[in-house]
Nucleic acid binder design. Structure first.
Ligand SMILES: [Mn+2]
Ligand SMILES: [Mn+2]
Ligand SMILES: [Zn+2]
Ligand SMILES: [Zn+2]
Lengths: 150, 150
DNA sequence: GTTACTATGAAAGTGAATTTCATGATCAGG
DNA sequence: CCTGATCATGAAATTCACTTTCATAGTAAC
């Protein structure tokens, strides 16, 4: 599954004048296999367990590249460091727990529709949007859940 | 109007063990009189026309203080630099034009309500949220409107 | 006024992200 | 295979917004 995806991306990079590289392949593989909402540092740590020599700069560059190509999405939960997620799943927004850092994804067509109406009312042509709700997740509200799932 | 507000804030600062200061007063006055969605640098430029000696650090500190006290709100439109707005008007979200930087405020109780429902469904206790829609404003879509109103 | 604070701003520090540059890897063409 | 040409890599340097430090100036309680 991920194999096919990586081949496709490699072909696309090649067509654009780039070259294959083992480092980048390893980074991409870990990125698409990992859970969502990773920081560059978290992903770098993961990758290094399998490929210790990897430079952090390469992880930065690979994620930027994937974002430019449309395969990754940059997220900003106001922590001061960016997070990335695969852009292959369908659009969704996020509930972010400020206690444990858990991130819950949700998708609500009614909200999306109302956003459409708002932009239309203002003659605004929307290209992207971000909706994040910050607060306290169920586990933390119940008293100290430390799931920490991103 | 702003006079009364500044007096109230000064009293609050005094009650918390702070002291009055001419610099801070000038910064606050310009902040509340200025249009919304200013960066620290923009506000500093404004203040300096009336008070050339002011240090940028003081503007940073004053805005942070106002945010802590609940009179200002920090915004992040993904530009890499924070913006601030007065927190005295009622809650609203933003349409942000990526061409000219114009910011349109909107408020939609139906969207707010649906957000409530989403959090409830996940047992999530919301504390804050951010909804920004990025795209192209009416003027820019019509071909080169350069309003640039923040 | 004296005293004990707080506020200020220049300079230094911080930290994420980007750029630079010398070196290594990849590939097309002979 | 070679051989260039070009791209990828990563350590180090740089950038940039923002924060902290610290000596000095301002403020207010006594
Ligand atoms: Mn997500
Ligand atoms: Mn606003
Ligand atoms: Zn939690
Ligand atoms: Zn515009």
């Amino acid at each position: 599954m991920v194999e096919r995806l990586l081949q496709r991306i490699d072909r696309e990079i090649l067509a654009a004048g780039g070259k294959r590289s083992r480092c980048r392949a390893v980074v991409m593989e870990h990125f698409f296999r990992a859970g969502h909402h990773l920081t560059v540092e978290e992903l770098t740590r993961n990758v290094r367990t399998a490929f210790p020599g990897i430079g952090g700069v390469t992880v930065y560059r690979t994620l930027k590249l994937l974002a430019r190509m449309g395969y990754a999405k940059e997220l900003d939960f106001g922590e001061g460091t960016r997070r990335y997620e695969s852009n292959l799943s369908s659009h969704h927004d996020h509930l972010v727990c400020r206690e444990c850092g858990a991130v819950i994804e949700f998708q609500d067509p009614r909200i999306e529709r109302l956003q459409e109406l708002v932009t239309r009312r203002h003659g605004f042509r929307p290209a992207a949007h971000r909706l994040e709700i910050y607060g306290c997740c169920r586990d933390c509200a119940a008293g100290g859940g430390r799931a920490g799932k991103r």
